[in-house]
Structures are given as structure tokens and as C-alpha cells.
Design a protein around this nucleic acid. Structure first.
Lengths: 263, 263
DNA sequence: ACGATGTCTTTGTCCGACAAGCAGACAAAC
DNA sequence: GTTTGTCTGCTTGTCGGACAAAGACATCGT
């Protein structure tokens, strides 16, 4: 696999070097990436126009454009209205979406998702109990009310469930945990809806758990919040198993559509 | 995102159409993405040549190329030798790298990283204690021996530390947790090295903790493994604070270089 | 001063072209 | 028969130029 024999030092002139055939468009992308990540161009600042980049890098416009496309999808470059290019910070929701997609393609199991959710959500809710602010408590109150009203509409319930936990994770004030949590949440959402559709009891238990969690958060009671989160997650697992599905089968590919349609 | 209000059917002449302002190259990318994610083209299979895609989509070759570039960086498309295009599954290390980069740009704090590590690593080690296999135990044994030998070389120590935890996370058999863990690990690595460089005691405690963790894993003793992981993480925090740095300051941008250089 | 106007700029898309590298076929040498 | 070298397509990477559309900008008339 180590291509090319070592440059046979026959007569001292061995500067052949293993051929560094990196295409120009990748070099352009790498250069721009370095500019942004290293902070020389701050998020929000404008990248030059294509013509300027052409002059700066000394390559053709098509090449510059291909380089830009590489970064565009990664979220390091954003287009305002009018399609001008600005440096940008990758958005969490986009990242979460990509991660979810990767999980689908890798065919991770529900068990893996559930284990991960258990670990992360309990930590999140513990932090949230400590740090939650009144306005986020208000948002949760509102969400709970809506959940009670929508108790017979599985689709809305699933949506509200996702929202509830998203608010809690925001309250935890930890963006690393927030991003770690998001993909699993996205992927569990469709199953969530299915559970609510099939079992009204699951919907009831969901509502009750949310109410208890919210109460614990109001009281800033870490222990109780964690306890209810555990119960909440166990409920989900039990309901899932009642459906006759195995936790060890890979998540459905139908989740993929759900992920895809959000860009 | 191609919304826009429906074209107000005021007087029958409503062929205004919601202005499909999505550039063609994005549509190409979306179409290819859908092909791969939905499973119509399985990972490893070849995407057609550019010429074929030109015919299939009815757009110019440049446009096709720009579309391909969008997916290329995301890891959905891979180039074999000879640059032919194949569908692919996004690699975890690439994803972790991107996530790390996002954290740097978002200027997350060491505290956020540490809290996340605490939550995830304890869960990981608990699962690992249950599921670890003899060969992974062997790898850990080897890693521990090397760590003992390299006790005076901070750079190697940091590298071995990262490896140790990576092996543990592999042993946990949960890819979701594994990916959730990776970015924080990457970002803490440089600070790790700095800690070892400044405080030989930190290196000693690190070695001791690893030994104890490994012992617990050998015995499949969950409780002890979790206990030692907690200690290990607290050690890190204490050492960090001894350095006089605040946990609440954003992670250094120097981490960025470290992240960038791994593709 | 303000709004309507036309012009400039920039992007999205297309066309055509060429060099380099890879794959396979084919002929030559052992 | 196997190996080697060569040749010919095919595909990608890069280039140059071109044009339409839409935003940005300057100008002009009131």
C-alpha cells in the first residue's frame, strides 16, 4: 500500500517526494477554512467575492466555486440574502441533523439511542434543575398545558415532547450536552409518535412525567428531577418493548425521511 | 425551505409560482443525498460518472460538480483511488472533528466540556465494565504499560490518555455515546498535554486512575469503574484549576489548529 | 429630500477545451 | 504462458469565456 519505492538514493538527487496530488479546489477550501477557524475572519464578516478569491488564489473561478461548495455545506460559510458570502458559525441544528443521518446510515440500534439518552438526559436535567430561569420555566409551563390539551393527537404530542426536552436542555446551559442530546432526540421522535398513536396510556404517562419533571424543576430539586427523568425514560423503553419491537434492531430508515426533510 | 405563501388565486392567472430560488447545484446534491440516505444506492456502490449525472439531471457538468462537492465534504461520497465516486457512510472521526470545530467557533467553555465528559464517560465506563472483551482488555493492558513507560513525556502521555479512553468507549459497544464523547476528548487533549507538562503529580495520578479503572474493568465491576472514572475526571478538574485557569473561559483557539491538522 | 430609473456588480449556469491519470486491450519480450 | 511495454479511450481536474438574472449602487427628475 505504501506507494512508490523509496527514492533510491543513487546519486544524491532524491527530492522526488511521494507525490502530493491534492486537487486545487480542496486547497482553496482548506485555506478558507483555516482563515475562519483560526479567527482571522470573524463570523459574520464577508468573504471576498468570487472574483477576489480568483485573484487571491490564482486559480480559475470554477475551482474557487468548487472550493466554496465544500465549506458551504459544512456551515462555515453562509449566504445572506443576495447570495453574498459571509463567514459563519456552524449551526447546531444542522450539525445534529448530519449526525442523525450518520446514525441512520450506520444502522445504530434503538438500544444505543436509549442508553445514550439515559446518560445524557439525566445529566442535563440535573444541571437544568440547578440553572433553569423563570422564563424557561414559563415556556415549559406553556408546553405542558398544550400537551394536556393535545392528549389525543399523537403527532402533536410527539412534537411537544421533543420541544419539552429541548427546552430542558437549553435550561441546562451546556451546549456540548445539548448537541450530544439532539440527534438521539430527532431519531426517537418518529417512534415516539408511533407509541402515542398505539397506546393512550403511554400518552398519559408521558404527560404525568412531564408534569412531575416540571414540578421538580420549579423547586430546583435535582434529585427528584433526575428520578423522574429516569422513570420517564424507562417508560419509553417499556412502551417500546410492549410494541413487540426489539431494542436491538437498527433504527428504521423511515427516520431518514424525517431527517432529510429538514434540510 | 421553499415555502412562500401560495400564489393568491385572485383572478385565475396565478402562474406566478412560489419562485423556486433553489440553485440547481443544491438540487443535484439533494437528489444524490436522497438516493444514498434512502438506501437506493448502498454504501460502497458507485455513483455514476459526471457525464452520466449530466445526462440524468439535464444540467451542465460544472453544476453537477458543484453539487458533488456539497456532499463530498459531508462524507456521503468518497473517492477511491482514481477519483471515481462511490456512495459512502460518514466516518465518525470526521464527524467528531467537525463537531469539535463547531465548539471552538462557538467558544464553549471548559466547564461545558467537563460536565459533558463527566456525564458521558461515567455512562460509557459502566457499559464497558459490563461488555468489555478480552482483546480490548489486552489493548488497555498494553496502553497502561506504555503509559507507565512514558511517564516523563507529556506529549506521549496525552496521546496515550486519549487512546485509553477511546478503547474504553469502544468497549462500551455504543456508537452513539462513542460519537458524543469524541469531540470533547479531542478538545481536551491539548490541555491534557499542558497539565502533564506542568505537573508531574497529574501524570502520576493519571496513571494510577487508569490502572484502577482497568482493574475494575477486568473484574467487570461497574460500581468501582464508575467510581474511579469520577475520581479521574475530578482530578482533571482540580489540576486544571491549579493552573490558575478558569473553567468558564472558552476553550483556546489553539485547539483549532490541532483539530484542523487532522484533515 | 425622495422615489424612480438605469447601470454596475455578482452570482448561477452554460459551453467548450485540454492535460493528466487510470483502465483495459493489445502487442512484444522473456 | 507470463510478464512487460505501449496505445487508446474514458474520466476527472482545471481553465477560459460567455450570458441571464437579480441585488447593489449611482443618477436623475420631481
Amino acid at each position: 500500500m505504501d506507494t512508490l519505492p523509496p527514492p533510491q538514493d543513487t546519486d544524491g538527487r532524491d527530492e522526488i517526494e511521494p507525490i502530493n496530488a491534492t486537487p486545487a479546489y480542496k486547497l482553496v477550501a482548506a485555506a478558507l477554512e483555516r482563515l475562519i477557524v483560526s479567527g482571522k475572519v470573524k463570523p459574520g464578516e464577508a468573504i471576498g467575492t468570487e472574483a477576489e478569491l480568483v485573484k487571491k488564489f490564482g486559480v480559475n473561478r470554477s475551482t474557487v466555486r468548487e472550493g466554496i461548495r465544500l465549506l458551504e455545506q459544512g456551515g462555515l460559510i453562509r449566504r445572506d440574502s443576495s447570495r453574498r458570502l459571509y463567514a459563519s458559525v456552524p449551526r447546531y441544528d444542522r450539525l445534529a441533523c448530519r449526525i442523525s443521518r450518520a446514525f441512520v446510515l450506520h444502522e445504530v440500534s434503538f438500544r444505543e439511542l436509549w442508553e445514550s439518552m439515559t446518560a445524557i438526559e439525566t445529566a442535563v436535567v440535573e444541571l437544568a434543575a440547578e440553572r433553569i430561569t423563570p422564563d424557561l420555566l414559563g415556556e415549559l409551563d406553556l408546553n405542558l398545558k398544550k400537551t394536556a390539551r393535545m392528549i389525543d393527537s399523537p403527532a402533536d404530542l410527539a412534537q411537544l415532547d421533543v420541544e419539552f426536552h429541548a427546552i430542558v436542555s437549553k435550561a441546562a446551559g451546556n451546549r456540548v450536552l445539548q448537541l450530544a442530546r439532539e440527534p438521539s432526540n430527532l431519531l426517537l421522535h418518529p417512534s415516539d409518535e408511533m407509541l402515542f398513536k398505539i397506546s393512550p396510556i403511554a400518552a398519559q404517562r408521558n404527560l404525568k412525567a412531564h408534569a412531575a419533571l416540571l414540578d421538580a424543576l420549579h423547586k430546583h430539586d435535582k434529585a427528584e428531577a433526575v428520578l423522574w427523568m429516569r422513570r420517564h425514560l424507562n417508560d419509553w423503553k417499556k412502551a417500546f418493548e410492549l410494541l413487540g419491537k426489539s431494542l436491538d434492531e437498527p433504527i428504521d430508515r423511515i427516520c431518514a425521511d424525517h431527517i432529510l426533510e429538514m434540510q
